[in-house]
Write a protein that binds this DNA or RNA. Structure first.
Lengths: 126, 126
DNA sequence: CTGCATCCGCCACGATACTG
DNA sequence: CAGTATCGTGGCGGATGCAG
């Protein structure tokens, strides 16, 4: 285990991140923010996520009060998911991350290419 | 793999998140943002992370151009890590998430408690 | 002190099949 | 369509040992 943790903030941030910081939660928030309301399979297709993870993630998010679940007991069942106010407030920082990600992917890629090239050229010598 | 992913944005965001979205990267960014420059063991102690993960994460982050590594070939070796401009730009959205997290942890907790209580009361009946 | 390599447990996640 | 249950695997992440 890891201890000697001298940074309580890190612990708490870590805690929250392990709750809502996973990639699927983030993508679900983004999707719902874009479309407002989505059905189970719409989300599934949109995100390219397995049913299992989608189901689990949605339940956790519902539990955490980030999304609302509306079940229509029709013959072909229909369930709609949407952001709650809390989820909507989460949308803002998440969007910031998303935008940063989209903007800086090229930077990361080029930094990587550079790093790899250098590493290849200088495996030893000066 | 599984997809039929109809959302290219999700793919790209996903991609970036799998690069810099892990918990250790985030915490390292936060730490470096706070202290400016930190040595290997300082980070290790501060975060409560194993050497292995710290080493791996730092190398990845250096590769991705998020942190800079300065090696002093003194007799007791000394290595300093700091944020690059790219890493620093990442700090902003990360901080936004961090703040939101700290503010809304109580909300999530209470939402959870409510959810769990309801689920306990209605495991079956109407 | 800084770091890499190895071994290994653990669980997160995906694939599949089944129910309502 | 929406979801659960089961199983198998990859890899995350910790512990240890070694090297410069």
């Amino acid at each position: 285990m890891a201890q000697t943790n001298g940074c309580p903030d890190c612990q708490r941030i870590n805690e929250v991140l392990s709750r809502v910081g996973d990639r699927w939660s983030v993508l679900i928030v983004i999707s719902l923010a874009q479309y407002g309301v989505l059905r189970f399979n719409e989300l599934k297709r949109h995100l390219g996520i397995s049913q299992r993870m989608l189901s689990l993630t949605l339940r956790e998010m519902e539990r955490d009060g980030l999304v609302s679940r509306t079940y229509y007991p029709t013959i072909p069942p229909k369930v709609e998911y949407a952001l709650t106010p809390l989820g909507d407030s989460f949308r803002e920082p998440v969007t910031a991350i998303g935008l940063w990600a989209l903007e800086n992917l090229p930077n990361i890629d080029s930094a990587r290419a550079r790093y790899d090239e250098d590493a290849e050229k200088e495996p030893k010598s000066a």
